[in-house]
Structure formats: structure tokens, C-alpha cells
Design a binder for these strands. Sequence first.
DNA 1: TGGCCGTGTCATCTC
DNA 2: TGGAGATGACACGGC
Length: 645
Amino acid sequence: MQIAKKYLTEGLIQFTILLSLIGVRVDVDSYLNGYFTPHEINLGPSSAYIQAPYHSLRDNQDGYSVHPKCPELDYFFASRRLLDQVRTLGSSPRFPTRLNAWLVHQVPDTDRTGTDEPSDNSNVIDTVPGLDSTTTGEHDGQHLPDSGQGECQTTRPCSTGACEEDLQEEDDTKEEEAIVLSQLTQSSTLEQESLLDSRSDSTLSDLVHPHPIDIDQQWSNFLALPVTDLDDLDPLVMERLSDLGSDIGGAISQDVSLRDAMVTRAGLYGAMSERPEGRLAAQRPPPFFRLESANASHSPSGLGLGSGVLPFASVCNATRNVSSSHGTLDGCLDEAVFEQINLLGLEGLDTMESLGSIDPRVLEDLDSDSGLSLESSSQGPTSPGTLEEVSSSSSSSSSYCGDEGGATGYSSEADSIPAKGVAEYTTEWSPVDLSESVWHDHSYSSPAFLHQPSAAMFPHKGIKEEPLSEDEDQSTEEDREMSRDEMRARSMCIPFSALQIVNMPVEEFLEVLEGHGFSSAQVTLLRDIRRRGKNKLAAQNCRKRKLDAISGLQEEVARLHAQRDRLLREKQLTTKTMGAVGQQIQQLTRDVLSRLRDESGQALGSERYTLQCGANGRVVVQPIRKPTVSSTVGSKTDKRKKDKK
DNA sequence: TGGCCGTGTCATCTC
DNA sequence: TGGAGATGACACGGC
């Protein structure tokens, strides 16, 4: 019984030291006060933490700033780095798990003769100043009495025959443990394929002096992996899990005796949301939709993420192409606008050049009902002679006059009335004035065309200026190409083209209506021509906007489809990774708990206990609460309430 | 010959 | 209150 007690006592000390390696505050007194009270185990009445010297180094970048050659700290920082990496993995918000910390044990690779040291655990601690209170026999009696448990400070039951065999087994298992631990740490990052591949080449010294891999950088690299690489990583994850499953037995081979599992009611996951998040926030990649949202409308840079950040380079490129095509579309639209302007100008020039040989079909194409299209509206201010010709030509068309009804009988008036007005408004309505109007649709008219000389602007005029004797059939062609409004205007002896009527400013239009003695029919016609011309332009603009809106929506739909596919793939990948890491953590939790011993020497089962990582990196063994307790308490309270009633 | 598309026009609403 | 713009609806012609 005494031997068993000593064994348990030393086991407790070993576990305490083990916890101290990972920064756990252990309070033995609290344990003595009660089983289920969340206390910290303390080795002395001063409640000094056993790892106090390490606490001072804790914030020292986890020992990275310490000289790597420092032999006293190598073991400690090697363990701390590995542990922190695993802890960061376990407590990362990206992979929320129940386990936040790991109980690890780093085994040195040197001085492992198996006989020179009475206890392997002391290898880690003995050389550290201020931490001489280890399980070594000669030191136990010096430091542990401070804890007030003098009976526990006896030497480990190495005096028994099985002691040396146990030590030898521990040596062997610790080597495996170190290797597997390194594998675990590396595999937990899921992105160091090279490290995974080279794990077989890793030496023990590498494990003891692990490379200072920045976990943040690892995560950044992981998140920066293209999706193809991540997809390829899935089998690697499973492979690593299988490897871990096969090697997990040797991950922590040393059975740590524990008189009691420290019980604490620290926040279940309180620590999860504290430390790692700030770190993760720093290492978190840029907001994925930041650029998209910032340019969600139609910005070509809507997916301005680098292809390295986006694991879906193809989608990104496609979307970028879409965006760029949209930008190109805008450019094309602008180019088309100017191109049409140029074409109109060229058409005007062509018209000038081909005054003598106008193709009626071309004129028909350029015609419009309201006479507001480019060519059909070219019946601008004409000379009295021209107007006479137009009147004569119009009157010569019996069908037209019949359609318009009342168009006859104006020729006599036309001889007198329009002459003054036409001459007047020919001077008033310069092309410059018309160019001041806003031309929304360039197929309709163009300032370039308006800037052409009168002969160019109004090819019909040029034609009409030619003697009728030369080409008497031109009048019929003019009638064919004239719009209804144009013909109405001519029939009503209105000396303005539809284009002029439409594009003249309101003030001048009102002056025209008021200052020329137009009849009510003429005024109505002028207003109708203007209204129809305006509406025609508006309709063209409206249709153009509608088409632009449709094309923009189509681009938006394509972009959203690409975004949805990308998010789905990312979600799938994240789910896979979370599952793999969760299983890994659960397996390690079970393994750790199975190697811990309670007061009766029984292993702490994962069905009864769990590991929790509290604030400041404290790792505690916490019993799993049973819901029945709360239910009973609730029933009791209910009964009390009933009794009070 | 019917469907599609472009265009002109009207009616209506809003500014 | 009228003008101008926007837009839906309809008609018409061309393909």
C-alpha cells in the first residue's frame, strides 16, 4: 500500500511537471480541498507555479527570441512550440473543436543511455534553473516538501525490480512519441506537404529543435493554396489521419500517474475565443468579398483578388474576363458611338460626293416616319426657290395630298409666306445651334452632320438646286424619302425641317410659333413634329438603356454564378478539413486521457473527462457533466417553488 | 407565313 | 402648369 501510494504520488508529480511544461498552473492544495472544485494544483503554500520561470519566458515569443543554442531551454521551447502550434490549430475558430490543448511530452534525443538518469522526465526539467523540483530522487526531498506533502516526496518506486524496465520502455516510447508528435504538429497544419513528405527524413534533433515555423505564415500559405491544390490535399489529409491513427498509439507512450484529475469549472470554451482569434484575425486572409463588394456594381476589379489568394483561379480569371469584357463593352459602346458619329459624318460627305447619283435605296434606309432621321430630316431651311420646288413636288403627288387632306392650295401661300421665314431662320438656325442639343442616339443624328454645310446637311436641297430639267424624277424620290411629318410640314408650308423643329431650343421654338404668324394647324403640326421627334429620341435612348441594363444584368448573373460556385467549393473544402481535424483532435484527446490516472490508478476515460484549454494556455482535465444532475436540480427547484406556493 | 427584331408613335407618368 | 424625359404598349415593316 505504501509503495502504491508512493507510486501515485510520484505520478502526480510527474504529471504536474508535465503540465508545467505546457504552461498549466497546477495547484495541489486545491486538489486536497476537494475533487470537483475548480482549483489549481499548487506545490507549495506560496502557490507558486511550478513553471514560474517559464512564465516569464512565456510571452517572449514562445522562446524564439532566446538563443537557440541555449541548452537549458531547448527542450522546453521545443515542447512549447509544438504545443502552441497544435493548440492554435485546435482552438482556431476556423476549426472549432472541443479540445483546445494537448498534453505533450518531449523526449530529448541525447543523453539517453537509459541508465545515467533515474528518471526521464527529469531530463527536461533538471537542467532548467529553478525547476529542480522534479521527480529525481535526490531533488524530490529538496523542493517538494514545500508543497506540504512530505510523504509524497519519496523517491519513485524505482527500487522495485520493474523500475528499470519501465524506464527502458519509456525511453523507447518517448522516441516514438517525439517523432509522432512532430508528425502531428506538422500534419495539423495541413499545408506543409513538403514537411509531410520529409517527415521520414526528420531527425530527432529536428524534433528537439524544431524549425521555428510560423503558424501564421503556415495558415496564410494554406489559405493561399489554389483550390486545385487544396483538392489534392484531401487525400493527404486522409493519409495523415490514417498515419496518425496507426501511430497514435505511440504518440504519448508514457503513462502518467495522477492521484487525481484536476477538476475545474473554467469556462467550457471560454479560452477558445480569446487568444487565437486575435491572432487569427491577423493571419486571416483579406476579406474575400471586400474587393468584390467594393466593386460589386460593374467594376472590372470586382474580383481583384490575386489568383494566389483565390483558390479558383480559373473562375477568377473567367470573372475577370467578364468584368473586363464589360469594361471593354463600355469602351465598345463609346467607340460605337463615335464610330457612328464618324459614319454619319462620312455619310454626309458621301452624300456630298454623290449628289449627282443618290441611291434611292440608301435614302430610304435613312428615312423615318417623322422625318427626324438623319437624311430624311435633311429638309432644312431652304431658299424660296427650293421651297417652291418642294411645294411643287409635294403638290405633284396627288396621293400624298389626298392622304394629308387639306394639303392642297398652299402653293400660293408658299410663294409668299415661307420666303421671309425661311431666309430668316436659315440665318437663325445655324448648325452650331443645333449642335448644342444633346444627341443621345447617334444613329439618329450627329453634330458632325449638323456641322456640314447646308448642301451636305440637306442633300435634297442640293438635288433640288439642280435644274429640274436635268432630272425630273428626283421629285418623286424626294417624296419617297420624305417622312410623314416632313411632308406634313411641307404641305403646311412650314419652312423648317423636322430635325430643326425637334432640336431647336424651347425658347426659339416658342419664338417661331409666335413670331411667324402660323395658323393653329401649323402650330399643332409643329408641336406634334417636335413632340414626336423628342419622343423618338427618347425611345431610342430608352431602348439603348434597356439593352445596356440587360447586358449588365447578364454579366452580374454570370459573376454571381461564378462566385456561388467558388463559395460552394470553399465550403466543401472547409467542411472536409474541419472533419479531419476534429477527428484528429478527438483521437488525441482519447489517447491523452487514457494515459492519465486518477486516484485509484484507473485511466481517465474520454467518456468521463475532457481536456480544456483555459485562458493563458492552461490545460485542465475537466469531467464531463451529466445532464441528469441539472435536471434533478431543476426538479428540486421546481418542488421548492411548488412548496412555496 | 409566322416569328423575331428594329423602329416609330402614343399614352402616361414623373420631374 | 407646361415642357421634357422616361417608359410601357402597340403598330408596322423588314428579314
